[in-house]
Amino acid sequence: MKRSGTITVPLRIALISLAICGLLFPGVVTGIAQLAMPVQANGSLISFHNTTIGSPLIAQEFNYSGFFQPRNDSASGLDPDITVQNASQQAMRIHNVTGISIAYLDGIIKEYTRYSLFFFGTTYVNVLYLNIKLADQFPSIYDKYVV
């Protein structure tokens, strides 16, 4: 091989790698994802009464005490879930503020309970789903607090 090859060959391979791995690959994956799975590809956004109000994947702020509230100490700072134990404790506060029955609150907690290991492990609920359910079922209480 020619001597000049020791510099030009790796430089060219580096640029080809940049094109394939750094541009073409993420570009093609984005194209396929946007066409075939637009909901997931854009962050699984959900609506409430025809307004997009966020993603159940990340926690959002709820400071009205009639809502379930997310934990604010977790690793990502965006943990959208709380343990069922935590949700049940909050149910008491929500009952006191709004008058919604404990039985109803326990019912929706049960409805949205998930297991961290499919069928065992920690049980948890998604805060946004619970609050959407409440806002939807009790407009007289929540209408003045929601978008």
Partner: peptide, 26 residues
């Protein structure tokens, strides 16, 4: 992506949250 990991070049989404008065960046 199928399992809900985003893949987009559309820029960050800035949305009003469910509770009025706040916003979040997705």
């Amino acid at each position: 992506v199928f399992l809900s990991v985003p893949q987009s070049l559309n820029g960050y989404a800035i949305l009003h949250t469910l509770q009025a008065g706040a916003s979040e960046v997705v």
